[in-house]
Measured scan of single mutants.
Amino acid sequence: MTYKLISNGKTLKGETTTEAVDAATAEKVFKQYANDNGVDGEWTYDDATKTFTVTE
């Protein structure tokens, strides 16, 4: 399945996607992506749209 990340960081804003077997796997990928880009904030997940959002 395709999962989307919306980043509302102070230094990184935008969207990216990943293919993953489940939401937990996608979350690990996205949290590593955010960490690699210096984004640390509040996370939410919408199962209906398969979208994670991180806001700093």
Rank of each mutant, 00 (worst) to 15 (best):
M1E: 13
M1C: 14
M1W: 13
T2S: 07
T2G: 04
Y3I: 04
Y3D: 04
Y3T: 03
Y3K: 04
K4A: 05
K4T: 14
K4V: 12
K4Y: 15
K4C: 09
K4I: 13
L5D: 03
L5G: 02
L5P: 03
I6Y: 06
I6W: 04
S7Y: 15
S7T: 15
S7M: 15
S7C: 15
S7I: 15
N8K: 12
N8L: 13
N8H: 12
G9A: 12
G9D: 04
G9P: 05
G9F: 12
K10W: 08
K10L: 13
K10I: 13
T11H: 13
T11F: 13
T11G: 12
T11E: 09
T11C: 15
L12N: 07
L12K: 08
L12V: 09
L12H: 12
L12D: 05
K13G: 07
K13L: 12
K13E: 07
G14E: 13
G14C: 15
E15N: 07
E15W: 14
E15G: 07
T16I: 15
T16A: 10
T17V: 10
T17M: 09
T17P: 02
T18H: 06
T18L: 13
T18M: 11
T18G: 02
T18N: 03
E19F: 15
E19L: 14
E19I: 15
A20K: 02
A20S: 06
A20D: 02
A20R: 01
V21T: 11
V21E: 10
V21Y: 12
D22G: 03
D22S: 07
D22K: 02
A23G: 04
A23P: 08
A23E: 05
A24S: 09
A24T: 08
A24V: 11
A24H: 09
T25N: 08
T25D: 08
T25M: 10
A26S: 01
E27G: 06
E27W: 14
E27F: 15
K28T: 08
K28I: 11
V29I: 14
V29H: 13
V29F: 15
V29W: 15
F30T: 01
K31A: 04
K31D: 01
K31G: 02
K31V: 05
K31W: 06
Q32E: 09
Q32T: 08
Y33H: 05
Y33P: 01
Y33R: 03
A34P: 00
A34W: 08
A34D: 01
N35I: 15
N35F: 15
N35S: 14
D36M: 11
D36I: 10
D36W: 07
N37T: 06
N37H: 14
N37F: 10
N37K: 11
N37C: 11
G38S: 06
G38H: 08
G38E: 06
G38A: 06
G38M: 06
V39A: 04
V39H: 04
D40F: 15
D40K: 13
D40E: 13
D40I: 14
G41N: 02
E42M: 12
W43E: 00
W43S: 00
T44E: 10
T44N: 07
T44D: 08
Y45A: 00
D46M: 03
D46N: 09
D46Y: 04
D46E: 06
D47L: 06
D47P: 14
D47Q: 09
D47I: 08
A48R: 11
A48I: 11
A48C: 09
A48K: 12
T49D: 04
T49K: 07
T49N: 08
T49Q: 06
T49F: 04
K50V: 03
T51P: 00
T51K: 02
T51Q: 04
T51N: 01
T51R: 02
F52N: 01
F52D: 01
T53K: 06
V54H: 02
V54C: 03
T55C: 08
T55R: 06
T55D: 07
T55Q: 07
E56Q: 10
E56A: 10
E56S: 09
E56C: 07
